[in-house]
């Protein structure tokens, strides 16, 4: 058990390091896209350590406790995440729903802490984040339902193994409509444009993060990196056949994050109700059609 927990912590740490580096590289890529130099690839590490080294403010115990609970929840979620079919801390307990709902503990902690700061913009940001969540989560869960039903397991390693068996395609090919919905939902999850309404720095002063500085903000940055790691890995495992070894995982991970980031950078921002309307129109419809086709008719490519 101790070994498993250590492996889990290792995975969380690896996820943090991986996403922070890839995040930095992506900042550089975006810089090049805008004809700039862009920062160093390890800029994100510097940012985080700088924030941790500063002396911030505290608005009372709930403000601190919420941050700890949030980071704790996210680290816990990352500890369950498989990297490849073999590298997983808790075999057969890497249930899909854990990732969706344990992630929610982290989000709840952050929302609590943000509202506890007493700033109205923080509450507005939380409201927007939750509303966005209501939008992207339902189509995504319907596609996940299809995948679980088709692959007959809700364990992520089993879903990976299912896609890697000869004769089965990756789910992004096997369920093309579902794959499209998956990409859109992933963009919503990552808070990429056009769905980044809840951050909106110029409008609501970066939303939930408005009151944070110093170590609390640093911890939220760590939280953000790890949650991006969880969400992108979830996509890789569900739709892209997972990975049989760590290099394939790295390649897939990097590709997914970069593509999503590039799409994001040529988009504007939706209004919050546009986000909801968007997700409940096409993605939900596509997800339902996909589920019908795959489950009732059994047409899986």
């Amino acid at each position: 058990m101790i070994v498993n927990i250590l492996v889990g912590i290792g995975i969380a740490l690896f996820g943090f390091a991986l996403q922070t580096s890839i995040g930095g590289i992506n900042r550089k890529i975006v810089g090049r896209l805008q004809k700039r130099h862009g920062p160093r690839w390890y800029q994100e590490f510097i940012d985080i350590f700088k924030l941790l080294s500063k002396r911030g403010i505290s608005h009372g115990w709930i403000y601190d406790f919420g941050v700890i609970m949030a980071l704790g929840g996210i680290i816990a979620t990352a500890m369950f995440m498989p990297l490849t079919v073999d590298i997983v801390a808790f075999k057969q307990f890497d249930n899909f729903f854990i990732f969706v709902y344990l992630l929610a503990v982290g989000m709840l902690g952050m929302a609590m802490s943000a509202s506890g700061s007493g700033n109205p913009w923080a509450s507005i940001g939380v409201m927007r984040a939750l509303t966005t969540m209501l939008a992207y989560e339902v189509p995504f869960l319907i596609v996940a339902l299809t995948i679980i039903n088709v692959s007959d397991s809700s364990s992520l390693t089993a879903i990976q193994a299912f896609q890697q068996t000869a004769g089965n395609n990756w789910f992004i090919i096997a369920l093309p409509l579902g794959g499209l919905v998956g990409v859109l939902s992933l963009m919503g999850m990552l808070g990429k444009k056009p769905f980044e309404t809840y951050i909106a720095p110029a409008e609501i002063a970066s939303g939930p993060m408005v009151e944070y500085g110093g170590k609390q903000l640093g911890m939220l940055f760590i939280l953000h990196e790890i949650s991006v790691f969880i969400e992108v890995s979830l996509f890789v495992h569900l739709f892209l056949g997972g990975a049989s070894n760590i290099f394939i995982f790295l390649i897939k991970y990097f590709t997914v994050y970069t593509v999503v980031n590039l799409i994001s950078n040529v988009n504007g921002r939706f209004k919050i109700d546009q986000v909801v309307k968007f997700f409940y129109k096409w993605p939900l419809l596509l997800a339902i059609i996909q589920a019908f086709i795959a489950i009732y008719l059994g047409w899986v490519i």
């Binding site: 927990i5 889990g8 912590i9 969380a12 941790l52 080294s53 500063k54 002396r55 911030g56 403010i57 505290s58 608005h59 009372g60 601190d64 941050v67 700890i68 609970m69 949030a70 980071l71 704790g72 929840g73 996210i74 680290i75 816990a76 979620t77 500890m79 369950f80 808790f90 344990l102 503990v105 700061s117 007493g118 700033n119 913009w121 002063a205 408005v210 009151e211 110093g214 170590k215 609390q216 640093g218 911890m219 760590i222």
Partner: peptide
């Protein structure tokens, strides 16, 4: 595992510099 995660977060929190306590009304406006 949730407990482990919170423990790690708590260690990070406690190792870093102590925050300055401010009033609820002293907020970004």
């Amino acid at each position: 595992i949730f407990g482990v995660g919170v423990a790690i977060a708590f260690i990070i929190f406690i190792l870093m510099k102590k925050s300055r306590k401010v009033e609820l009304m002293d907020t970004y406006t």
